Simulated scan of single mutants.
Amino acid sequence: MFSLTILNLATIVAAPFAGRLIDRFGARTLLFPSLIAMALCLLAIGYGVTSLPALYAVCALFGFSTVGAQSLTYNKLLTGWFDANRGLVLGIASSGLGLGYSILPLIIGFGMAAYGPGGTTLLLAAIILLLPLVVNLFVAHPRPDREAKGNEARSDPVGRTLRQAVTTRYFWLLAIAIFLVSIIATGIVPQFANVSKDLSFTTAQAATIASVFGIATLIGRLVVGWLFDRFFAPRVTSIIFFAAALGYALAAWTVFGGLGWTGLLIAGILMGLGFGAESDLIGYLASRYWGYRHFGAIYGSLLSIFILGAATGPLLYGTMRDIAQSYGPVFILCALLGTTASGLMLLLPRFPTAEELHDPVPVRTPGLVPAANESNIR
């Protein structure tokens, strides 16, 4: 499991740099090498790893070299193509993650039974090269009037720099909210089986809770994306995050004996909705608050914060469970963290207009920290 921590840490380091490269040279420049690197790393795990240090090294390379094949690249492309229905489009795209989570175990199960571990990694590498790589050759093109050349775009799309973004109070409000929700949402995924075991639920009941969580995540991504296009996105997200916090409170109540399996099932639905909202949130708000031109650098920085939370969550759950001999206390903490994230979303200001984003000097909209000098602005 520590190999996953190493992979996440390498991705945290790589994401901001990858975002800058995408802004400067275009998404395709990083997308295809990352897909090829992903296939090669899988083959290395299947055929080249003969020791634990070697596994750690390959996982570090995996995390660092494949970030260009993750949401960073796809969100950069999609935000360039879509405006009015951007929330729904990002929701549909991110729902592919849910489908992948559902299909991948079946593929791995088939591969292990038919070909063994090495053959399974070869099968996964082949799938990557034959499906996403080939499909992206035809569809992963930037909008012609927004194709990057050097560090500028031909039609001068609006957008703040990363330096300007981090001087705003709402960047850090968003970053903290993302971090908190990432801890509680990604940390719960590996825990459902253990929670069910602690409560003496059957294997079938545990599988049902995990499946319902996945379905709720998929639905949440679609519904929340649709709502983003029609209502003020931070308020929508605040409601969803609060619903997720209620889910963790229900889970704590179940652990302490107040509810049975049905209570944990309802909690799983509410948790899944929160997980779905968080996935769409980063790309949508980054594009609305700071524009398109430097979207990759800003999104990459926020993605690093999200991954840091994802790396922290499982450790938090496991440590508190071992200390308390119960998941009740960690669920209470998660309910508090989710409520805090919900409140932070209510503090976000209105989206700046295109004219404000075009202005070379950031306007003093609510929540904006004035730059100290001209070099700061640049």
Rank of each mutant, 00 (worst) to 15 (best):
I127H: 00
L130I: 11
I103G: 04
P105D: 09
P117R: 10
I127Y: 00
T73C: 01
W81G: 13
L90M: 12
Q70I: 07
T79Q: 05
V89A: 07
G87M: 08
G68P: 00
P105R: 10
Q70A: 06
G96Y: 04
L77Q: 01
A125K: 05
F110S: 12
L97M: 13
G116K: 10
I103F: 03
L129H: 06
L106G: 06
L99T: 13
A113E: 15
A69R: 00
L99M: 13
F82C: 09
I128C: 01
A69V: 01
Q70V: 10
L130P: 04
L77A: 06
W81F: 10
R86S: 09
G100S: 07
V89N: 03
L124G: 04
G100A: 08
L88H: 08
G80E: 02
A84P: 06
L88N: 03
T66C: 02
A69H: 01
P132H: 00
N75T: 12
L78T: 10
A84Y: 07
V67W: 03
I128T: 09
M112T: 13
Y115K: 14
P117S: 12
L124T: 00
G80C: 02
Y115H: 12
K76E: 07
G109F: 11
P105C: 05
L124Q: 07
L130G: 06
G116V: 15
L104I: 12
T73E: 00
M112D: 11
G109R: 11
L122I: 13
T121H: 06
A84Q: 14
G118M: 10
A113R: 14
I127N: 01
I107R: 07
T79D: 03
I107F: 04
Y74G: 01
I108R: 04
F82S: 09
R86N: 07
T120N: 09
L78S: 11
G119N: 05
L72V: 09
L72A: 07
I128D: 01
G91C: 06
I128G: 00
